[in-house]
């Protein structure tokens, strides 16, 4: 059982198999970036929370399967019981089959996403670590999860190229969403704006990263989406100076007058206001400034 695991997981597979054989309960934190935590119960994987792929909460909430308010209430209760899935099921917010599908998808996608960053190195074993609030009741054999993740990597490689490269791209729609053959593709075209990575699209749509990437390659094959790499000079957008108009170019530079920007004192209350107002109006305004009770009067 010490044979290397399927690419791109390699040595990690050996560790996961050993945990399965030892009927391990707890968690394994695989260092990234990003860090990924695999939660085990009796040697089976029950949850894989990672920033690299949407969790079951995103899959259920973003698709509207469970409402945000309902979720918040159930989660609050689950903080006491430790089992959000049971809370959602007991109150009929989601069916058992639908919840299990979302959890299964999340686990498989989390393992898939680990393979997108081959820089994953080392890890930390935490025996008896608390499981997340939302997890599978019956976990998945880690070897089965790795094989499925590797199959998805292989499929993407055959269809397009290295999945790790695809994950870094920011797809842009080349056609109107109405030309998409299905609702899922329509939603993808609608949001592929050249700024979002497949991971961003997965979080926005509440879908698995692996599913989004597979659909992106299908849309690219049909010429509905552009997967070409876009080169950015840096993380921040550089704002270029606007070109000046001919009139601006011809205008001479403003000459600075010495002392013109100095601090100016406020006029005294009894000072004659330098104004171009008519004489009678200026006199009335001057009178107003000298009205009894006016704070200015004491200064005079």
């Amino acid at each position: 059982m010490n044979a290397p695991g399927p690419a791109p997981f390699g040595a990690l597979a050996t560790d996961l198999r050993r945990m399965h054989e030892e009927s391990f309960t707890g968690s394994l934190r695989v260092f990234g970036p990003p860090d990924t935590t695999l939660h085990f119960h009796h040697g089976l994987v029950i949850a894989v929370p990672t920033p690299a792929a949407p969790g079951p909460d995103t899959l259920l909430l973003r698709t509207g399967t469970v409402g945000a308010d309902t979720w918040a209430t159930a989660r609050e209760r689950a903080l006491a019981t430790g089992d959000l899935g049971a809370e959602l099921l007991d109150r009929g917010h989601v069916s058992a089959a639908l919840l299990e599908l979302a959890l299964t998808r999340s686990v498989l996608d989390g393992v898939f996403a680990m393979g997108l960053t081959p820089s994953n190195r080392g890890g930390q074993v935490l025996p008896g670590a608390l499981p997340p609030l939302l997890r599978l009741d019956e976990g998945i054999d880690p070897d089965q999860a790795l094989r499925e993740a590797a199959r998805r990597h292989t499929n993407l490689t055959h269809r397009w190229g290295p999945p790790a490269d695809l994950a870094r791209l920011r797809p842009a729609a080349e056609a109107a969403p109405e030309r998409a053959p299905s609702r899922a593709h329509h939603d993808l075209l609608l949001r592929a704006d050249g700024r979002r990575t497949p991971r961003d699209l997965a979080f926005v749509l509440g879908r698995e990263v692996s599913a989004v990437m597979a659909d992106l390659t299908r849309l690219a094959e049909r010429g509905l989406i552009d997967l070409a790499e876009r080169h950015h000079e840096g993380a921040l957008t550089r704002r270029l100076p606007e070109s000046r108009t001919t009139e601006e170019k011809d205008r001479p530079l403003v000459r600075r007058t010495p002392g013109a920007n100095g601090m100016r004192r406020a006029p005294r209350a009894d000072a004659t206001l330098p104004t171009a107002l008519p004489a009678d109006l200026a006199a009335r305004l001057q009178e107003t400034l000298r009205a009894p009770g006016d704070l200015l009067e004491g200064d005079g």
Binding site: L101, N155, A184, R207, E208, S210, A211, V212, A214, D215
Partner: peptide, 22 residues
């Protein structure tokens, strides 16, 4: 089957009759 990834969540009965999940 999961449409996008081609993953078979569950399969039952005479497996040899089924189309490949993908």
């Amino acid at each position: 089957v999961d449409r996008a990834t081609g993953h078979a969540f569950v399969s039952m009965g005479e497996q040899g009759l089924l189309l490949p999940a993908e």
